[in-house]
Computed example of a mutant assay.
Amino acid sequence: MPGYKGHLAGGLFFAVMGIVGAVLLGWFVVDPILAAGLTGFCLLGALFPDVDTDSKGQNLYYAVFALVDLGLIIREQFVWAAWFGLFAMLPALGSHRGWTHSWWAMLVVPLPILGLPAFVLGAESVGRFVPFYVAFGGGYFSHLLLDGEF
């Protein structure tokens, strides 16, 4: 069972292979900023299953959560900040290697990546965010694979 560095390496491998594969299949035109964003989402997905335990991965993840929540508060988006804070606490409600280490969580956890833009920008915007959902899910899958869940 790898630590956070191993999961980051696995997530990075999946991100690079996914981007290279998408370019070779003609699904993706090389855009460094978009590629960096997709890689970031993949790395966050690779760390997410372990946010329910005291680890460096958890510290990194919650630092990102805190910055996003602070940004929402500064922008006076208090309702969104409250929802974000609630969802950020959910992993602590289970035991380690509990629900966060399940195949269904790999599909459900990143759904806000599609749902929030649909709610805020309209259903027609969802297609632009599918690559980010897939990237997060790919990173999540890499974590579960490295932990021997499949």
Rank of each mutant, 00 (worst) to 15 (best):
F129A: 01
F78M: 13
A66D: 07
A88T: 12
L72S: 10
F136N: 01
A88N: 06
A135E: 00
P117R: 02
F129P: 00
L86G: 10
G139T: 06
L116P: 03
F87R: 06
T100W: 12
M106A: 15
G127M: 10
G122P: 03
G85Y: 07
G94W: 11
G138I: 01
P117D: 04
G127K: 08
V120R: 14
F136A: 05
F136E: 02
P131T: 05
G127H: 06
S142C: 11
E124K: 11
P110N: 03
S125A: 15
R128H: 12
G139N: 08
L121R: 05
L67Y: 05
G122W: 02
W83P: 02
R97T: 10
F65W: 10
P117F: 01
A118M: 07
R97Q: 15
F84G: 05
Y140I: 06
A63H: 04
S125H: 11
Q77C: 06
F141C: 09
V79Q: 11
S95E: 15
G94M: 10
G138A: 07
L72F: 12
A123T: 15
E76T: 14
W99C: 08
F129G: 00
A118N: 05
D69G: 13
V64Q: 04
F65N: 11
H101W: 03
A88R: 03
R75Q: 14
F132M: 03
F84P: 04
L86M: 12
F132T: 00
R75C: 08
M106N: 09
G137E: 08
A63V: 09
F84L: 09
G115H: 01
W104Y: 14
G115Y: 01
W83M: 14
Y133G: 00
G98Q: 09
L72D: 08
A63P: 03
L107P: 05
L72Q: 10
V64E: 07
G115K: 01
L72M: 14
P110E: 01
P117S: 06
V120Y: 12
A82Y: 06
I73T: 07
A123S: 14
G137N: 07
R97Y: 13
E124R: 11
V64N: 03
F78A: 09
F78R: 09
G122C: 06
Q77V: 08
V68N: 02
P117C: 04
I74C: 09
L114K: 03
G138K: 00
R128Y: 13
R128I: 13
L67C: 13
V109C: 05
W80P: 08
S142A: 15
L111D: 03
A135V: 00
F136I: 04
Q77N: 12
L67M: 13
A118P: 02
A135N: 01
H96Q: 10
G71F: 01
S125K: 09
F119Q: 08
L107T: 10
G138W: 00
R75F: 06
W103E: 12
L72Y: 08
S125P: 07
Q77L: 13
M89R: 10
L121I: 06
I74F: 08
E76R: 13
W104A: 12
E124W: 04
H101E: 04
R128L: 12
G115T: 03
P110V: 02
S125E: 14
E76P: 04
S102G: 09
F87A: 09
F132W: 03
S102R: 14
G85M: 10
